[in-house]
Design a protein around this nucleic acid. Structure first.
Length: 921
RNA sequence: GCACGCGUGGCCAAAACGGCAAAGGCGCCGGUCUUAGAAACCGGAUAUUGAAGGUUCGAAUCCUUCCGCGUGUACCA
């Protein structure tokens, strides 16, 4: 690559007879610095509620301040800025804020590894990244920045927690966490992957810990049903994933009575349940049940521990122990279980079924017990095969309706899980599954051993983290009063300024006595604080409300500010947050609605999920752990398609390669700062938007970025070439590319000028439509085409006709305005030259150019003529020529008659304005 | 396994409702300039739209099957 533009920056432009002087060459850095300063000085992007324009809230997902921006951020924020600029130019009062998800583990890890202060580390990172974003020229309202780790923000995490505590939405419960005995630390699932502690390498166990939960499940139906209101504005796959995640499943509960095997007394503890309730979605298969299978933790077995045979108890203990081991997601667990000796009576058939403990039944879903119907459920099939349990088919193919229902069906070689017709099912023989489900549930209900039931996959949200760098949970434990919420006036419960974080032990806060020891808010006696902190998803559940009222010390947000700006009109972010963050944020909004803070159900009207930015990685995993190599240190062989054949390290070690999410540690990261330094912010942003559709994965390939630079340079050159001719017309009071202010072309007006105006207006239409539908790559292509069209006009600026100058002016001014969302600095500069005002588009209330259909229309169009679908000729016709006229012209055409002579014309198809097709035989 | 999505020149990609000879960029080739190269500029070539069937006057677009790739998810009863 050649001499970087930046090194040439700073050359002063020569004074010319134009209102705004212009360098002959495009100096990215000079222009970018100029406009970044102007925008900051004029507070161009600071939003205010004092406006008579309609509001538009453009939001991008809250970044974690890791220290450096990566290309995924650049992609996300460039896209957001396209929307923000577009809406601004469309006359909206735009709110476009940014902030920091600044609580979380990396800061704590840095503290452990390098002994730095997490607060200082975090603040320094925020500084760095803010600078990077500013150099990219993203049009944020910096005055509204929030950062989760600052007490003025997390105060309200705590406020919300207390409110939820009052509402019964926050509660404490014992649950299992990954636990490293050696380090005495809880671990997230990722940190415990493979069953080994990521820090010390010792096996991880599970441990029961008291944890705080937020009752997301009390909003399950709303979370599910309210999606109907936002469905149109959200990607289908996100909607689907949320539905799956919530996992509503409709079926029935059925109670089975427990009896001990013949000859044995029931030695169960007093109060041991004598029924087992199962959940099933297929009650129609109940005559095929061969066993009841319960989870190892099910009360029906735990309460009978004393009476169960020793080998049964041993096996149950083994299953429990096995289930406590963390395992890889991919690993398939073999079915295991044991017959407890208990019997359960099928309330439909009266049959006594064995009660098994099975490792595939989960205690925390449904009732922790299932009826095993091997003929019609794959898991039960597998279980029955392994333990040689009987398999009885009770559902037959649908066409068997009214046939011989009692006949033994064909021997099955796999579970038949479809709906069908009941057989071997007594009274219900011959009925369809759907009918039987309904009737059997009603029957169970009527006879008191069952009911209609709906279960969900969604669990409550565990927010406790045994960590330092998070928002303290505002709860106090008092020997006299028990669990006591902190008083509102005592918020925020502040993190201690500096503590030693070693990475071992329980929550680091537990060792800070000034923090732990406190007075009970209730009785003022000695008490201890909760030392767990909140999940950082808490912070990101409501930050977008804080932006609307960021300085408020008394409330999370003023309802009036929230009412003005929210809900968010357009949200843009990574696909990876499709489920968790977006469910939590939706939940939080519903809680805020119930608190009367907002009046709507859903926080994000429209959502766009962008694809990841990925790059090639090279690594050696022969040691079991991946060691990454920088691409510069790798010798790569490629085939003619560019696919990698082999890669070797400089010392000759053969390396594996892959395409992975960009990151510094993997050596495939691109530093946005470096890119901005070399190519400029505008070119970088254009390239990132142009390279691939926003929702696709973007495989990083830097080669293309020079095309973006060339495009900007070409536009610049065109503006420079025409600057004198344009400036002579730059004295209008209202700068505008609107078309109505120029009379229609005189008959003598050149065809070239007419063509350019047509291209301009066609481009306006295209770009407008693309931006409305959130396509960012095609508008860039359209701008390139428009710029090519300007270049195609051969007229000399000095001698051009008035029509031609007007057409060029309209094209360039439109181009500048439409370029603003992608390359705002260059666009502002060009706009200044064209309009003679150096105050910027915002101050000038610049508007997106308006499309004029009359100008976009060609006066004559070419109509292809096909014979039997094959192109044979073309006609020139007016765009509104009648079908009859076109048909006549086509049939008279010589090239057409060659193919139609002597044949019978079967029919003629005319697509108005498009083509004529003559079908002959 | 299940669900969803995608296959268009060497590469990234565009083409309302099925309707012209399938955009744009990168790369490539040639030219101008230059001692030469690079950059820049100008010009040019390059596609039976993954495969096979089907529907239709007409298919990149709709349907079926297959092949390849990607994403999500998994004992959820």
């Amino acid at each position: 690559m050649g001499e970087p533009a930046s090194e040439r920056a700073g050359v002063p432009g020569s004074e010319r007879a134009v209102y705004i002087s212009m360098d002959e060459k495009y100096f990215a850095k000079k222009i970018e610095q100029k406009w970044q300063k102007k925008w900051a000085d004029s507070r161009a992007f600071e939003a205010s509620m004092e406006s008579n324009k309609p509001k538009f809230y453009q939001l991008e997902m809250l970044p974690y301040p890791s220290g450096n921006l990566h290309m995924g951020h650049v992609r996300n924020y460039s896209a957001g800025d396209v929307v923000a600029w577009y809406k601004r130019l469309k006359g909206f009062n735009v709110l476009h804020p940014i902030g920091w998800d600044s609580f979380g583990q990396p800061a704590e890890d840095a503290a452990i590894k390098r002994g730095v202060n997490p607060r200082e580390w975090t603040e320094a990172n925020i500084d760095t990244m803010q600078g990077q974003l500013q150099r990219l020229g993203i049009s944020y309202d910096w005055s509204r920045q929030m950062a989760a780790h600052r007490p003025d923000y997390y105060k309200f995490d705590q406020w919300f927690f207390l409110k939820m505590f009052e509402m019964g939405l926050a509660y404490k419960k014992k649950t299992q966490v990954n636990w490293c005995e050696t380090d005495q630390a809880t671990l997230s699932n990722e940190q415990a992957s493979g069953g080994l502690c990521w820090r010390c390498g010792n096996p991880v166990t599970k441990k029961d810990l008291e944890q705080w939960f937020l009752k997301t499940t009390s909003y399950t139906d709303q979370l599910l049903d309210d999606m109907a209101a936002i469905e149109a504005g959200w990607p289908q796959n996100v909607i689907k994933r949320q539905r799956d995640w919530i996992g509503r499943s409709e079926g029935a509960f059925v109670d089975f009575k427990i009896s001990m095997p013949t000859g044995q007394l029931d030695k169960a503890a007093a109060g041991a349940p004598n029924t087992v309730r199962i959940f099933t979605t297929r009650i129609d298969t109940i005559y095929g049940a061969n066993a009841i299978v319960v989870s190892a933790e099910h009360p029906v077995v735990t309460s009978r521990h004393a009476s169960l045979p020793a080998d049964v108890n041993a096996k149950i203990a083994e299953i429990v122990a096995e289930s406590l081991k963390p395992r890889d997601r991919e690993e398939e667990v073999e079915k295991d279980g044991i017959d407890t000796g208990l019997k359960a009576i099928n309330p439909f058939s009266g049959e006594a079924l064995p009660v098994w403990v099975g490792n595939y039944v989960m205690m925390d879903y449904g009732t922790g017990a299932v009826m095993s119907v091997p003929a019609h459920d794959e898991r039960d099939w597998e279980f029955a095969k392994k333990f040689h349990l009987p398999i009885r088919q009770v559902i037959s193919e649908p066409h068997m309706e009214h046939e011989h229902h009692t006949m033994q069906a064909l021997a099955l070689d796999h579970a038949f899980t479809d709906h069908g017709v009941l057989v071997h099912s007594d009274y219900w023989n011959g009925k369809k599954s759907e009918t039987a489900k309904k009737e059997m549930t009603e029957y169970a209900q009527k006879h008191g051993f069952g009911e209609v039931a709906t279960t969900y996959r969604l669990r409550d949200w565990g927010i406790s983290r045994q960590r330092f760098w998070g928002s303290p949970i505002p709860i106090v434990y008092c020997d006299n009063c028990g669990i006591v919420p902190e008083k509102y006036e005592n918020l925020p419960v502040q993190l201690p300024d500096s503590i030693e974080i070693t990475g071992t032990g329980e929550s680091p806060l537990a060792r800070v006595s000034e923090f732990v020891n406190t007075a009970c808010p209730n009785c003022d006696g000695p008490a201890r604080r909760e030392t767990d902190t909140m999940d950082t998803f808490v912070d990101s559940s409501w930050y977008y409300y804080r932006y609307t009222d960021p300085q408020n010390a008394d409330a999370a947000v003023d309802p009036a500010a929230a009412a003005y700006w929210t809900p968010v009109d357009q949200y843009i972010g990574g696909d990876d947050h499709a489920v968790m963050h977006l469910i939590y944020a939706r939940f939080w909004t519903k809680v805020m609605r119930d608190l009367g803070i907002v009046k709507f159900d859903e926080p994000f009207k429209r959502l766009l999920t962008q694809g990841m930015v990925v790059g090639e990685t090279f690594f050696d995993d022969s040691t079991g752990k991946r060691k990454y190599f920088m691409p510069a240190d790798v010798k790569v062989e490629r085939d003619e398609k560019g696919k990698i054949i082999s890669a070797t390290a400089s010392d000759g070690t053969p390396l594996k390669h892959s395409i992975e999410r960009m990151s510094k540690s993997k050596g495939n990261g691109v530093d946005p700062d470096e890119m901005v330094e070399i190519y400029g912010a505008d070119a970088s942003r254009i390239f990132v938007m142009f390279a691939a559709p926003i929702e696709n994965e973007l495989v990083w390939n830097e080669a293309g970025i020079e095309g973006a630079v060339r495009f900007l340079q070409r536009v610049w050159r065109q503006v420079y070439r025409w600057r004198d001719a344009l400036s002579a017309h730059a004295d209008r009071t209202t700068p505008s590319a609107q078309s109505g202010d120029h009379p229609p072309f005189s008959k003598e007006g050149s065809q070239a000028a007419r063509d350019l105006r047509r291209k301009t207006h066609q481009t306006i239409k295209r770009i407008d439509e693309s931006l409305e539908t959130l396509q960012f790559n095609t508008p860039v292509a359209a701008l390139m085409e428009l710029s090519n069209a300007i270049g195609d006009l051969e007229a000399d600026p000095a001698t051009a006709t008035e029509d031609e100058v007007f057409a060029v002016r309209e094209a360039i001014e439109s181009l500048a305005l439409m370029l603003a969302p992608f390359a705002p600095h260059a666009a502002e500069e060009i706009y200044s030259v064209v309009t003679g005002s150096d105050d910027g588009m915002v101050a000038n209330e610049a508007r997106f150019p308006e499309f004029n259909p009359d100008l976009a229309k060609s006066d004559e169009i070419e109509i292809p003529v096909q014979v039997n679908g094959k192109l044979r000729s073309r006609l020139m016709a007016s765009p509104d020529a009648s079908n009859e006229h076109l048909t006549e012209m086509a049939l008279a055409d010589e090239k057409v008659t060659q193919y139609t002579d002597g044949k019978q014309i079967v029919k003629t198809i005319v697509v108005p304005g498009r083509l004529v097709n003559i079908v002959v035989r």
